[in-house]
Design a protein around this nucleic acid. Structure first.
Lengths: 198, 198
DNA sequence: GGGAAAAGAACTAACGTTTATTCGTGCTAA
DNA sequence: TTAGCACGAATAAACGTTAGTTCTTTTCCC
């Protein structure tokens, strides 16, 4: 009867959620079974239910953890007295950093949120819509100030968000450049692509 | 006993594969059941097996149809006597066009290939790796010719491919700009971001 | 052209698995 | 000693798929 080993200051539930993130990333939410998860945790499937309510709880825990971090950062950036282009760069760097250091959770949130069930699903979709509008607003401000070239803001948002999620491939690749180089390269391409031609 | 209605010159299997693409996009491969698919087609689940061998056949049919189209276009572009930057622009426009006009299939191929089973899985992963290397080679040539700014080519590839897959959001959005505008905007940002500063 | 034979495509019923989850019991750390 | 936690066994529902049968369309010979 081997107990789940916790990190110090971490609950057993935390261990399960964390292993779930890895598993959901590898196989997808639907394809990852509770028996798979149990094996990864080192315990029988039934035992998981001493710590969590359901499989779906694991998903929405993951998703909203990530979503909250992003909203919090957005609050911070919006209130800073810097140019729109600088805001975009800060935001981009944050997204990149999250994707590098909290890979599993962020990736799962991005790809598996469809499997949330209401009310979490509509709640999440709402948050997402609002978040994108906030990015678009920064871009539109930059266009008005002629810092950013005049292009459709929602299109920029879409390129931005998805380009960052490409870091997934970087994680998997064998001969990686360093995280710092990766960040620098992405910023170079995307922020330069935004700049108005003077 | 309602038969599956075919387009002219199309088999019943084609109808099933096409509906499967839509369903796999909406719910994901694993979450989409054969009973769901049967309902979409207008028939009982068992009847599907008069036309297809298995659920997984549907997936690899979709995936390799798409993959082959991309490889073919790559062959064509590689052999053209144009600059690297022009090649990248052509490739980008092709990716965008595919994503706009063959949305369901392309999207499914991109997101659900993990659920392929061997030998299709390793085959696909191979093709994918080669394809990315071919893009990287174009970029590296452009860097040597000083058309493209000196950045890590694999990073560009990653941004490139994922940015395009962002068109998914465009499809879903309600107040869309036109397909032409979308294409123009994406080219503006990405190709401009590549250009060497002279 | 009309009618029998063959082929195609649908049905219902059931199969064996796998799924997430619950229950009651007993071990073990605090 | 008690509360927490892991266990094996069991559940119902859903899954992909097969079997056997029936209906419908096409093919082909007279």
């Amino acid at each position: 009867m081997a107990r789940i080993k916790t990190e110090k200051n971490g609950s057993r539930k935390d261990v399960i959620v964390s292993k779930a993130a890895t598993l959901f990333r590898e196989k997808g939410y639907k394809a990852a079974s509770m028996r798979d998860l149990a094996e990864a945790v080192g315990v029988e499937a039934a035992s998981l239910y001493n710590h969590i309510k359901s499989k779906s709880e694991l998903l929405h825990e993951l998703v909203f953890n990530v979503a909250n971090r992003f909203v919090l950062k957005m609050d911070e950036i919006e209130s800073e007295p810097i140019s729109s282009l600088q805001k975009m760069e800060k935001l981009l760097r944050f997204h990149i950093s999250e994707m590098i250091h909290n890979y599993e959770e962020v990736y799962v949130s991005d790809r598996e949120w469809k499997h949330l069930s209401d009310p979490y699903l509509s709640n999440y979709q709402n948050q997402r819509r609002v978040y994108r509008k906030r990015i678009a607003a920064i871009i539109e401000e930059g266009i008005r100030n002629k810092e950013i070239k005049a292009i459709d803001a929602p299109t920029v948002v879409l390129i931005f968000l998805h380009a960052v999620s490409g870091i997934e491939s970087w994680h998997r690749s064998t001969k990686k450049i360093s995280a710092e180089e990766l960040e620098q390269n992405m910023v170079a391409i995307l922020i330069d692509g935004l700049k108005a031609n003077h």
